[in-house]
Nucleic acid binder design. Structure first.
Lengths: 339, 339
DNA sequence: AAATTTTACGCAAACGGTTGTGCAAACATT
DNA sequence: AATGTTTGCACAACCGTTTGCGTAAAATTT
């Protein structure tokens, strides 16, 4: 291959018969440099397509201009929206993104966190895996003054800024909506409460029932493990075959709701007339299933944006690194499954 | 903030009273260094958590260990699968990924390509935007000996290795399947033919009709512009209201198929009894719509993996940079919409 | 014992920028 | 005219690692 060397400051300096430092300063319009020289240097650089060696710059500045992102799953509508927001914001500020998956496993999370740490990212964004109950792999960043921001799946054991959606009110609005539609016997299929989102949504559900004076039964709350469609199907079956079947389902996520809908359709229950179904997250598919699924929309893109802004701010100044919480609003999207 | 400096080779050298170069070599077990010294250095490095400064290493090697990825859309099931494959493969080989979106616009594609170029990526993966008909922004990489690999949306004007799925046979299999099910009047809703995938799928469709001796009508082929659900709906309406309505639809993508299904359901056509519908891409939602949508599955993860492998190989040795084509097989996924 | 080879390490340059400091010339002030 | 100030640039150190080369000491061969 042709061995074309990239143009360097030294080359320009030699060509114009001035010093390297003058070239460097001229390119950034340093006040010490005369306008004539600035023009001269810039013209030459432009003409010869000078592009600064970022590797050298970053090394000198001891900054990678990389931020790390750890998410449980990449192939996921919500998380890809988040990524999209992160990328846009990061790029706007001259930062690049290094994305890693934890696959919802603590082991993998630790592995990729260490990799990002050795890569010397300037900051870290993370949505914790469901398994995460230790934080040493994240503390090492803080010990090295590398700011961390958590989003969506967060923990209060990690004292860093966080961005979440208002799961509580999202759930509250969703459940209230079904109550107003006349369906007051509402079941809830949720995840384990160690995950903050699950806990908040459940609280919102309970508060709505309470505020509207609806029946509350412990066995109307089912705890999913993997949060799959199958679980939705199974629990729907259990609940609908019980002595006191509900006439509405509030599901922790759209996938579970789909399982519930499948059971209901298989057994000739009419949605929403007989039984209403509400999801959470508003996946793309929610609008395409039949009947279209009502859901609580989480602003993924916005979360990504906001989290990245917080992180970049923390990178700039130390004071921004205190734990603080940004809570973004959810939007109730009403479709056919709740009338 | 506490000003804790990272441990450097110099620190280790000073502590052990040996030279920096010996430390450097010891850590990589250079044959010039005695086993005793290697052990000594490694022990010290381990104990004090030495982590090499990648910024310095990369600068010194003049390698960023970054590869760029340009895709039309991030929030998209297929592309996030691809990304997932790319990330895994890249990380396995010590490379990081810089992801950019073109939003299907040439202008954006050029912008991000330039950004990646200045970032000095070691290689570039790209799936072209639908608008791309110029290639200067990509040629600059080749001129600088930075290898490029294209996938999915490719162009033969770009003489670099490419990875695609077998759109032709995917389409052929899909259409043949419907014919075998007894639906011989098959319409096709496709995209513009300058996009290679659209062209291949259309050819596969035509070949299947021909091989099975089915009617072929030019007006059974509709050309979508944005490839949206609405277009599917519109064309389904047009076709079903025509004098000679088809009894099957082969759609260039699942989204279009959903639009078609919507029209059919709205107008009381039975799927698949009256009219069959076939999509392409096998999006997540295909299995959740009613009736579940048959589709042609594209192995996104595999494409990402393969493309990355080709790229990394090209980075390693110049000879691997010749244009060559890897074609991955598709899988026909039969669901309710085709019986 | 002298000559040769091997072993094990140190020295110093290099990568391409950034930046603090020094200094001559030009200009302004008294 | 002597002094002080500003302007515009050059010098050189520096970031942390890699690597070619040189060389004493040890090991081996004559």
């Amino acid at each position: 291959m042709t061995d074309k060397k990239k143009l360097t400051l030294k080359d320009i300096a030699k060509a114009l018969n001035i010093s390297i430092s003058t070239v460097s300063r001229a390119l950034k319009e340093h006040p010490d440099i005369s306008n004539d020289t600035i023009k001269l240097v810039k013209a030459y650089a432009e003409e010869h397509h000078y592009v600064p060696n970022l590797l050298a710059v970053n090394f000198r500045q001891n900054k990678s201009y990389n931020i790390g992102l750890i998410i449980p799953e990449l192939v996921h509508h919500f998380f890809s929206s988040v990524i999209s927001g992160v990328i846009q914001t990061a790029n706007q500020h001259g930062y690049n993104l290094m994305i890693c998956q934890s696959n919802e496993k603590l082991e993998d999370e630790i592995k990729v966190a260490n990799a990002l740490f050795t890569s010397r990212v300037d900051g870290l964004l993370i949505s914790l895996s469901n398994e995460t109950d230790r934080f040493e792999h994240l503390f090492q960043f803080l010990e090295d003054d590398i700011p961390v921001v958590q989003f969506d799946k967060i923990s209060d054991k990690l004292a860093v800024p966080s961005v979440t959606v208002d799961d509580f009110h999202g759930a509250y609005k969703a459940v209230s909506h079904m109550i107003q539609k006349g369906h007051r016997k509402i079941a809830h299929i949720r995840g384990r409460l160690i995950v903050q989102n699950a806990s908040e949504r459940c609280k919102g559900y309970e508060k709505a029932l309470e505020d509207h004076g609806c029946e509350q039964h412990a066995d109307w709350i089912k705890v999913g493990k993997d949060i799959t469609e199958e679980e939705g199907y199974t629990y729907a079956k259990e609940l609908m075959e019980s002595d006191n079947p509900p006439n509405a389902f509030f599901c922790i996520t759209d996938l579970v709701a789909l399982g519930v809908m499948k059971y209901l359709k298989d057994h000739a229950f009419k949605i929403p007339e007989d039984v209403m179904v509400m999801g959470f997250s508003n996946w793309k598919m929610a609008e395409f299933v039949t009947p279209a699924l009502s859901s609580v929309d989480q602003p993924g893109f916005l979360i990504g944006q906001k989290a990245t802004e917080l992180l970049l701010e923390s990178i700039k100044n130390d004071e921004s690194r205190m734990a603080k919480t940004v809570v973004l609003p959810t939007t109730l999207v009403i479709r056919a499954s709740t009338g």
